[in-house]
Design a protein around this nucleic acid. Structure first.
Lengths: 153, 153
DNA sequence: AAAATTCGTCAAGCTGCTTGACCAAATAGT
DNA sequence: ACTATTTGGTCAAGCAGCTTGACGAATTTT
């Protein structure tokens, strides 16, 4: 016997489910990061940390990543410097630019965020089979636009 | 032979994938809504429409749904009224309150949004088996916090 | 009947973003 | 090599969307 609901019908509530799940994840990460003592940061800062971790980035690169103006990125960078998460180093190859890199505190915070994300997703992932998790990754990556993480709405 | 990657490792990029997919969905809906002629609205308004469609809602109910203050909800309602998407009716049971309901234009816009969402997700869903889509719905609904759609970050 | 709560608005203020103008350094054109 | 253009970053002003605070009117509680 065939199913009474087609794939089309199933699509109806997917938008809400997807957005709601994303929201739950962000809330979970935010709560976990705060619980680990980083109470002066908001989720928006996390999207900057993603770009700054590793080799660091310039103001322009950060702005492009966050899809905001250089002026706005500069303000956020100043805030993160003031709070001790980011350091401004002279750029090795361009005297105009300055390289933004995470301080030890900044790195500790990204670690806290990773832990919080893991903490949020693990209990949920354990209700799924490994194959389901793998399928989920495949499905999401097929819809996702690489590099565009930060919601702007 | 067992896999070299455990479930734990797979969890690493799930946060990015989930957020990126949500972003792609919102971008797709926004583009589709604009393409259908509703160029004076932004994604944020969609979250209000969700609550107003059907029987409508009061300012207080809208504020609670959007997780903003009544004053902010009132401002948004005024904007939507001014643009012709929402109407303020006297509340049938409470002389203090006013019922916000969608106008014909507002209803047409929600229909456009539904179409746009479908348009965004259908080609993607067709790359998946019906069973995969069903599994995805189950998985997402297990993570989602019901009612919390709107991102606040 | 009085007290307390709730609905919505007016007013003021803040935050995070924008646009516009500008200097300094780097790159491209001739 | 020298000029012209582009690029990196900041200063300044302004705006949009939110907040807190105070309030009158209608409702609900006691």
């Amino acid at each position: 016997m065939c199913q009474t609901l087609s794939v089309r019908d199933d699509l109806q509530d997917l938008p809400v489910l997807l957005l709601s799940a994303a929201r739950a994840l962000v809330d979970g990460i935010d709560a976990g990061v705060r619980a680990r003592g980083f109470t002066d940061l908001r989720p928006a800062h996390g999207f900057a940390f993603v770009r700054l971790s590793g080799t660091g980035a310039t103001i322009s690169e950060l702005a492009e990543h966050l899809e905001i103006t250089k002026q706005a990125a500069s303000q956020m960078a100043e805030e993160l410097v003031r709070k001790g998460y980011v350091e401004r180093l002279p750029h090795p190859a361009d005297a105009r630019a300055r390289l933004l890199v995470l301080t030890a505190r900044g790195i500790a915070c990204t670690r806290a965020a990773d832990e919080a994300a893991d903490e949020t997703l693990r209990p949920w992932a354990q209700t799924l089979s490994p194959a389901q998790v793998a399928a989920l990754r495949t499905a999401l990556s097929r819809l996702a636009t690489p590099g565009r993480i930060r919601p702007t709405w």
